[in-house]
């Protein structure tokens, strides 16, 4: 019963998705499967057959970082970086479900992703800033 995580990291050689605990607790292996955030360490690979999978490698388009990635850089949302790919996936998922989150919603949206470096404050800032950027971009494109 291979894990989706092993298929991603070993068969697809996409090592941006990390294994932090293998028990669905840390969220470092978060990916978006058929539009839903999941812990890839807890998904049997067989259940992902034919599914649409988005990993951290599919978040930036070419050289252009996603607004969430950009904000993590500017706000200090990444330190050691090992939780970052999963955290970015959780943030991307949150902003899709809830484009204008308040701080409580951001904290709830990231609650399954453990970070040992930041104390979460700068990650929360990063997600809030990414939401603002998205609004700005939307407004600019409208005007």
């Amino acid at each position: 019963m291979a894990r989706l995580l092993d298929v991603i990291r070993e068969d697809l050689e996409l090592t941006g998705t990390k294994e932090g605990c293998g028990e669905g607790e840390c969220g470092a292996c978060s990916v978006i499967l058929n539009g839903k955030l999941v812990n890839s360490c807890l998904v049997p690979a067989v259940q992902a057959e034919g599914a649409e999978l988005r990993t951290i490698e599919g978040v930036a388009s070419d050289e252009q970082l996603h607004s969430v990635q950009e904000s993590f850089l500017h706000c200090g949302g990444a330190q050691c970086g090992i939780c970052t790919p999963g955290m970015v996936m959780a943030a991307v998922d949150l902003l899709k479900r809830c484009p204008h989150p308040d701080e409580a919603q951001i904290r709830d949206g990231l609650a399954g992703n453990l970070c040992r470096c930041t104390g979460y404050g700068k990650i929360v800032d990063s997600v809030a800033q990414a939401a603002e950027r998205a609004i700005q971009v939307a407004e600019e494109s409208r005007s």
Partner: peptide
């Protein structure tokens, strides 16, 4: 090394 970290 931030860029390498946020892109995986």
């Amino acid at each position: 090394e931030g860029r390498a970290k946020v892109t995986g």
